[in-house]
Amino acid sequence: MILTQQRTQLAKFQSLIALVLLCIGISLMSDKFLTVDNAWNVMRQISVNICISVGMTLVVLTSGIDLSVGSVLAFCGAITAGLLKSGIELPSNNLYIGFTILGAILVGLIAGALLGLFNGWTITRFKVPPFVATLAMLTIARGLTLLWTKGFPISNLGNSFAYIGTGWFLGIPLPVWISAVVIVSAVVITQKTALGRYIYAIGGNEHASKLSGININKVKLIVYSIAGVLAAVGGIMVTSRLDSAQPNAGISYELDSIAAVVIGGTSLSGGRGTIMGTVLGAIIIGVLNNGLVLLNVSPFWQQVVKGGVILLAVIIDKANSKND
């Protein structure tokens, strides 16, 4: 009994322990790691992954998956950049529609919501497995990005827009503030609202949830729409930071977000996990990426290491599920 309790307590703090050990290990191998500039750099970089991963957490809690977030990120960033720089021209009607920064951002967020909604509709209406539906959207959104950009970056978007990704507010990078708002909102949703309770219930036992009167399809539509919006938020931040919408932006971002979710303790079978656990997982992934760069590890080996970390996290998740 005592051993079981100790194992449970250890499982709760395993991500935090892993982060501490990772920081100690990297700091011993690189004197550039424990610096203020590097710390802010890491926080700015993980802000994007946190936004994506929070949306992924909500999806995974319903026992789903979203492989399209990287492509949705790229498309929404490109939409925002294109409208901001060139607007919409309708030569046949001799009409030009210009967009302010706020207007372009709103359209980008709406595009993310619509793509996420389409994912949810495909899954609920046609009973397509989430893996297959979102894999298809991964390709669709990437194709739409290439069509919109014609394969070329959309750059020189202005200092005001660049402030979103590179600016500071009260001594803290603005992307960190944006991710903090996303985190707080998601925590409130999962812990203080009926929607949060429904998300956990569906992931725990979808059949029982249906019998209890929960509108499962509606909840899934909302969850996948939120995931799309948060991918769009990430896309806008990336585009702003680079001052350019790249057609190949967001490649492999879905792997980092899934890694953050699993490392943070969210079960891939659904119904168990927390937003703050995912945030911790995103920090671990960010520190790992930063450490590998500082140690001049080959980008090819970086992929191997991250893949191994994801595999290890899934193995631990399965082990914890059996102990439950």
Rank of each mutant, 00 (worst) to 15 (best):
P130A: 12
K306Q: 10
L288C: 12
I189P: 09
T190G: 08
A259L: 06
F13P: 00
I79F: 08
D317I: 04
P173G: 11
A194P: 03
A201R: 01
T145K: 09
V287C: 15
I50G: 03
S269V: 10
L109F: 10
T122P: 01
G307M: 08
L312A: 15
I258C: 03
S212I: 00
V48S: 07
N205V: 10
D31E: 14
N248F: 09
L95N: 03
A11T: 13
V293L: 14
Q6H: 09
L58C: 07
F33E: 02
V181W: 10
M56Y: 05
M276D: 06
T4W: 08
V223Y: 09
G112H: 06
K322F: 10
N93F: 15
L34D: 11
G82I: 01
Q45M: 14
D256G: 01
I101E: 11
L221V: 02
R272C: 00
V229A: 09
G87M: 11
L230R: 08
K220V: 06
L147P: 00
S267H: 05
G82P: 01
T278R: 13
A201E: 02
L10D: 04
S185R: 00
A201V: 01
T57I: 09
S257Q: 05
T145H: 12
T139P: 00
L295G: 10
G64A: 09
K127E: 13
V54G: 02
I24E: 08
L195E: 05
T190F: 11
V293I: 15
A162L: 05
A259D: 01
G98A: 15
A78R: 01
C23R: 05
G291Y: 03
T274P: 05
A180K: 06
I189R: 09
Y163L: 14
L84G: 03
T134F: 12
V305S: 05
M56Q: 13
G281D: 12
K218G: 01
L83H: 03
I226Y: 08
V297R: 02
K322W: 08
A81L: 07
I222K: 07
G286D: 09
F300C: 01
T239A: 12
I283T: 15
P129V: 12
A74V: 00
T166F: 03
I26C: 13
V59N: 07
I236V: 15
V233F: 11
N159V: 08
N290Q: 15
F13H: 11
S209I: 01
G213I: 08
V233C: 12
V293H: 09
D324S: 14
I310D: 00
L115T: 02
T100F: 10
L19R: 04
G308P: 10
I88K: 04
L28V: 14
A245M: 05
S298H: 07
A141G: 13
Y224I: 00
I202P: 05
L146N: 09
V107C: 11
P299R: 03
N289E: 13
K210N: 12
N119H: 06
L242E: 06
E254C: 14
A180L: 15
Y200W: 05
V184F: 13
L292M: 14
D66H: 05
Q9R: 13
S267C: 06
